[in-house]
């Protein structure tokens, strides 16, 4: 019995390692804001930069989703529904992870870091503060890259879209990444048996921030002063 138990655990570590290393390998490249030096430094420029960045990152994130084990086996409408629900959570989680080593700043891109003062000038202060709350939470926990990529996959598969056709297939995908996280924590943080749960319990805050962000950018869209690319607009409209 002890041998069997050991073998099962080893097998599960191998399975976990496979999913986690697959997710690590699928991580998109770094993004750069490359903001236009010809534009005056005002709120419109900042928001234009953010919207352009978000649009380019969305393309990368869709490519990333396609690498998720099992995602491409879902029906195309279900793939769309998951992304339409979780796209902002994925964008925010990436900003949060990039910002873990920054001091009270959000690293929107390698070359685009925003502090509270700049956020205030852009009308983003509330959102900035909310995202920093999540940054502080993960920093206190010492969030690792492996955990970040797995959480991102959980956020995608846990999008709670009301229009999923094949709920069992989406649930199967979610179970796979959830199990990978649990196995990772068992093998790397065995001294904290509640760590996987603690990480999953951060997802409601992520969803709350994401809803705020969508609401904010919808108002920016309605205002009509900031140019937005089509993919970003499509997804804003999906919410």
């Amino acid at each position: 019995l002890p041998q069997m138990h050991k073998r099962t655990r080893t097998e599960s570590y191998i399975a976990e390692n496979k999913v986690v290393s697959h997710l690590l390998g699928a991580e998109p490249e770094k993004v750069y804001a490359m903001h236009d030096p010809a534009l005056p430094d005002d709120d419109i420029k900042a928001l234009t930069t953010l919207c352009d960045l978000a649009d380019r990152e969305l393309v990368l994130n869709i490519g990333w989703a396609k690498h998720l084990p099992g995602f491409s086996s879902l029906s195309l409408p279900d793939q769309m529904r998951l992304l339409q629900s979780a796209w902002m959570e994925i964008l925010i989680l990436r900003v949060v992870f990039r910002s873990l080593d920054a001091q009270d700043c959000l690293v929107f891109a390698e070359d685009y870091v925003m502090d509270a003062e700049q956020a205030k000038q852009t009308g983003l202060l509330e959102l900035h503060g909310a995202i920093l709350q999540l940054v502080r939470k993960y920093r206190a926990m010492g969030l690792e890259r492996e955990e970040f990529v797995t959480l991102k996959a959980i956020a995608l598969t846990n999008s709670d879209s009301m229009h999923i056709e094949d709920i069992d297939a989406v649930q199967g995908l979610q179970d796979c990444v959830h199990e990978a996280l649990q196995d990772y924590e068992r093998s790397h943080h065995g001294n904290d048996p509640r760590r996987a749960g603690k990480l999953i319990m951060t997802l409601p805050l992520l969803r709350q921030i994401s809803a705020k962000a969508v609401q904010y950018f919808c108002s920016v869209k309605q205002d009509g002063r900031v140019p937005m690319h089509k993919l970003f607009l499509e997804l804003l409209e999906a919410n």
Binding site: P28, V59, L60, I62, G63, W64, K66, H67, L76, P77, Q79, M80, L83, Q84, K230, L231, E234, L235, E237, A238
Partner: peptide, 19 residues
Amino acid sequence: TERHKILHRLLQDSSPADG
């Protein structure tokens, strides 16, 4: 799908990461 043409196209595109 009609309202989400770009998302649809990117998901259908056989290359995994480029738009």
